[in-house]
Simulated assay, not measured.
Amino acid sequence: MTEETFAKKRDEVLQAMITFDAGDAKRIQHFLKVYTYAALLGRQEGLRAEVQQTLELAAILHDIGIHAAEAKYRSAAGIYQEKEGPAPARKLLEEVSGIPDAMIERICYLIGHHHTYKDVDGADYQLLLEADFLVNAYEDELSAKACKTFREKVFRTTSGTAMLNAVYGLD
């Protein structure tokens, strides 16, 4: 997908996700921050265009299952978000014509695994985990010690690690 075409599709997905989360400013703010970090980190890592595009759309939609998880399980726990997220993400992405089926499949896979820190099978997956943590660490007011522990256990990219260190003043 050309950059110009992708930019239009990305903006459609952003607007659709804002509409999906209408009235929930906290969730909208969250996915916008994760998207911004993911897009920046992907560019810094020099991802191929298709992988970058997949990462950006997955970052926008990564928490799409949270409302269903809260309604069905009375919990926003990651395992429930992963279970409930792919179906509404697929529906939203299919309504935005022109997104390739293979990309939709990968985005749904990433949404269904964005709280799973083992068997990470690509840069898009790794960077989604790192971008989400960059935002969650702030929103959850994690300590420097917790950030360092997560860095050691999960962070793998040069740009993500540098960003975590810079944002949270880690050594």
Results as ranks from 00 to 15, higher is better:
N165M: 13
A162L: 02
Y80A: 07
G23N: 07
F133D: 13
G85W: 01
Y37S: 10
Q52F: 15
A131F: 03
T54K: 07
V51E: 15
K26C: 01
L55M: 12
Q29E: 15
V96A: 10
A7N: 14
A131G: 11
V51G: 14
A162C: 02
G160S: 06
A49F: 07
E84H: 11
Y37D: 03
K145D: 12
K91Y: 15
M163H: 06
G23H: 01
T19V: 10
I79P: 00
E70Q: 07
A22H: 15
A144V: 07
Y73E: 15
V34N: 05
E152K: 15
G42H: 04
L129N: 00
A69K: 04
E50R: 11
Y73L: 06
F150D: 08
L93W: 00
T36Q: 12
Q44D: 08
K33S: 08
L57T: 06
E139P: 00
N165H: 06
K33E: 11
A123H: 01
L93Y: 10
I111C: 13
L127Y: 08
F155S: 09
A59R: 01
E95G: 14
D124L: 04
E12C: 14
L14P: 07
S143H: 11
I60S: 07
Y37E: 09
D119S: 13
G78L: 04
F133Y: 13
G65I: 03
G65S: 02
G65E: 02
G42V: 00
E152C: 06
A123P: 03
G169D: 05
N165R: 14
Y35W: 06
L170P: 04
D124T: 05
T158G: 09
D24F: 05
L110Y: 00
V51M: 05
G46N: 09
L142N: 14
G23W: 05
D101A: 13
F150S: 06
G65N: 00
I66F: 01
D119M: 05
E139V: 04
L55Q: 08
M163D: 12
A68Y: 08
S159K: 10
S159I: 04
I18C: 07
E94T: 14
Q29D: 14
G122K: 12
A38F: 03
D11A: 08
A16I: 03
D119A: 15
S143G: 04
K91C: 12
S75P: 02
A144Q: 09
H30N: 13
V96R: 14
S97F: 07
A77W: 07
V135Y: 03
D119T: 05
A89C: 08
S159F: 00
L61A: 14
L47A: 09
M103Q: 07
P88F: 01
T2N: 14
Y168A: 02
R43A: 10
I18H: 09
T5G: 15
H114G: 09
R156F: 01
H115C: 12
Y35P: 02
E45G: 12
I107E: 01
L55F: 08
A102I: 02
T36I: 05
D21T: 06
Y117F: 15
I28P: 02
M163L: 11
A144L: 04
L41F: 09
S159A: 15
G169T: 08
E152F: 10
E139K: 10
T19W: 05
F155P: 06
V120Y: 06
L110W: 03
I104L: 15
K72E: 13
E139I: 03
A25F: 02
M103Y: 01
E105A: 12
I64Y: 04
F6W: 15
Q53Y: 00
L14D: 11
K153R: 10
H115R: 12
T5N: 14
E82W: 04
